[in-house]
C-alpha cells in the first residue's frame, strides 16, 4: 500500500508539471481572449469611416474610402454595413454582413448600377478585401469562438506589458495555420498580430496604433498597418468619425437599407 502511494506520488510528480503547464497555457490563452471580448461588450452600435491606402512594392498608392455601420448582436456575431465611397466607379456599392460566431457569415452585395442585390458566398475568408492586404477574415468581427488559443509568454512590447498568445483558426477555410497576438495586460488591446499562412510561413504582420477610448470603455485604434512579407505590398487603414450608440436597429441592417445606402 505504502509502495503504491509512493509510486502514485512519483507518477504525479513526474506528469503533473508538464500537463499542468500545457493546460494552463491553453486555459490562459482562452481566458485572455474572453476577457478582451467581455471588455468590448455592450457598445450596442457605432458608425465610423475608414480610409484604406493600398501600396504596392513600388510604393504606388491606391485609396478606398468606406463608411461602416455596426450593430452588436447578443449571442451572435455583429451585423455590419459597409458603404463604398471611393474609388468612384464603385461608389454606392454596399456590403451587408451578418457575422456568426460559428459557421459561415451571411453576406449580400448591392450593385448600384444594376440596382441588384447579390447573395455572395462568405466561404472566401482568406480572399483579399477590396484588393488590399487585409483578408475578409482579418476585418470581420473577431469572435472568441473563431479560434483556439495558447498563451505563450508575457513580454514588453513598445513599453507595454503584453500577453503573447498564439491562436489557431477553427474554420478550415481560413488562410492561416496560426496567428501570434501581442495584447497589453492592462486594457486587453491587440497591438501586433503576425499571420502564418497554410504552409506555416510568416505571411503578414499587422500593427495597430493610436487607440482612443470611447464612452470611457471601448478602445478603437486610429491606424492599422498590414505588411505582406511575401509580396512586398502593404495596406494602411485610417479610422475616423467613430460615433457610438447612434441608435442603429435591426431595420438598419436589412436588404432595404442595403439598397438605400449611399
Amino acid at each position: 500500500m505504502k509502495n503504491r502511494i509512493f509510486l502514485l506520488v512519483i507518477a504525479l510528480l513526474a506528469v503533473f508539471p508538464f500537463s499542468a503547464l500545457a493546460e494552463n497555457a491553453e486555459d490562459r490563452g482562452i481566458s485572455i481572449a474572453r476577457e478582451a471580448d467581455l471588455r468590448d461588450q455592450g457598445f450596442q452600435d457605432f458608425t465610423s469611416s475608414m480610409k484604406m491606402v493600398l501600396r504596392n512594392r513600388h510604393g504606388q498608392e491606391s485609396i478606398r474610402e468606406i463608411r461602416i455601420k455596426t450593430l452588436e448582436v447578443e449571442n451572435d456575431g455583429d451585423k455590419n454595413l459597409n458603404i463604398f465611397d471611393t474609388p468612384k466607379d464603385v461608389k454606392g456599392t454596399a456590403l451587408l454582413t451578418f457575422t456568426h460566431k460559428v459557421g459561415d457569415d451571411d453576406q449580400w452585395l448591392y450593385l448600384p448600377a444594376l440596382k441588384r442585390v447579390k447573395r455572395i458566398s462568405s466561404r472566401n475568408k482568406s480572399g483579399s478585401f477590396m484588393g488590399s492586404e487585409f483578408a475578409y477574415e482579418d476585418i470581420s468581427s473577431q469572435e472568441v469562438e473563431k479560434y483556439t488559443y495558447k498563451w505563450l509568454r508575457d513580454e514588453k512590447y513598445e513599453g507595454m506589458d503584453c500577453f503573447v498568445s498564439e491562436r489557431y483558426p477553427v474554420d478550415k477555410n481560413s488562410g492561416y495555420t496560426r496567428q501570434l497576438v501581442w495584447m497589453d495586460t492592462k486594457e486587453y488591446r491587440a497591438h501586433k498580430i503576425e499571420f502564418y499562412d497554410r504552409k506555416n510561413a510568416h505571411l503578414k504582420t499587422l500593427t495597430i496604433k493610436g487607440y482612443q477610448q470611447y464612452l470611457n470603455k471601448y478602445w478603437r485604434p486610429d491606424e492599422m498597418s498590414m505588411v505582406n512579407h511575401q509580396n512586398g505590398k502593404s495596406t494602411d487603414l485610417f479610422w475616423s468619425n467613430y460615433t457610438f450608440r447612434v441608435g442603429l436597429k435591426d431595420k438598419d441592417f436589412n436588404k432595404n437599407s442595403l439598397k438605400r445606402s449611399r
Binding site: D106, K118, R119, I120, S121, N124
Partner: peptide, 9 residues
C-alpha cells in the same frame, strides 16, 4: 430564388 451553400450559389 438564390441560395448559398459553401462555395456554391
Amino acid at each position: 430564388v438564390q441560395m448559398v451553400a459553401g462555395e456554391w450559389l
